[in-house]
Amino acid sequence: MSIETRLAELGVTLPDAPAPAANYVPFVRTGSQLFVSGQLPKGEGGLVVGKLGADLDVTAGAAAARDCAINLIAQLKAGCDGDLDRLVRVVKLVGFVNSTPNFADQPAVINGASDFMVEVFGDKGRHARSAVSAGALPFNVAVEIEAIFEIE
């Protein structure tokens, strides 16, 4: 089954790959690796903002991480010239969680992205990962996630 078909089964329509908000490129390909810059949780309702442990709970944070994953896949599609089936595997996700000093559930928040990658890509979506706290993130977003993909 193609990845586009799988996304359609999940009811997911990829947005256009978000343009960079500053002086950087959205992705860099070197050899068979595609490095995607940090993606923000922008869905149909706009940016998900707030601090985990104060403004948002784990469920809302995981939903924001899923939005980041959708934007990562949109960048992957752009980096693969529109052909998501060129994906070999998701290599690594690095997730940053805008959280209070006492919030310790960053892994549960980033699971929203990790689970989505496996849901979309199956075993190709299993990856190495970091999930870390951040005192603040751009635009006060709840989560930012970057990725490394292996592509053909």
Rank of each mutant, 00 (worst) to 15 (best):
I3N: 05
I3W: 11
I3G: 07
E4H: 14
R6D: 04
A8R: 15
E9N: 13
V12G: 07
L14C: 04
P15E: 05
A19V: 12
P20Q: 08
A21M: 09
A21S: 12
A22H: 13
A22M: 09
Y24E: 15
Y24H: 11
P26W: 09
F27E: 07
F27V: 03
V28T: 12
R29W: 00
T30H: 10
T30N: 04
G31C: 10
G31Q: 11
S32K: 05
F35M: 13
V36Q: 01
V36A: 10
S37W: 13
G38S: 13
G38P: 07
Q39K: 15
Q39P: 02
Q39L: 09
P41V: 09
G43F: 08
E44P: 08
G45E: 13
G46D: 10
V48N: 11
V49F: 05
G50V: 14
L52M: 09
G53M: 06
G53E: 07
A54I: 07
D55H: 12
L56W: 11
L56Y: 02
D57C: 06
D57V: 02
D57R: 10
A60L: 11
A60P: 08
A60S: 11
A62Q: 05
A63M: 01
A65G: 09
D67L: 15
I70A: 11
N71A: 05
L72C: 08
L72Y: 02
A74T: 04
Q75Y: 00
Q75N: 04
Q75G: 08
A78N: 03
A78Y: 01
G79T: 04
C80L: 01
G82Y: 01
D83I: 00
L84V: 02
L84Q: 04
R86Q: 06
L87D: 01
V88W: 10
V88H: 12
L93E: 02
V94S: 13
G95E: 03
G95N: 09
N98S: 07
S99Q: 01
F103P: 12
Q106V: 04
P107I: 06
A108K: 15
A108I: 02
V109N: 02
V109T: 00
I110F: 08
I110G: 05
I110C: 09
I110Y: 10
N111Y: 14
G112I: 05
A113Y: 04
D115K: 07
V120T: 08
G122D: 05
D123H: 01
K124N: 03
A128K: 14
R129F: 15
R129P: 06
S130H: 15
S130E: 14
A131N: 14
A131S: 15
A134V: 09
L137K: 14
L137T: 05
F139H: 10
A142I: 06
A142N: 10
V143D: 11
I145R: 02
I145N: 09
E146F: 07
E146Y: 01
E146D: 10
E146V: 05
A147K: 10
F149K: 12
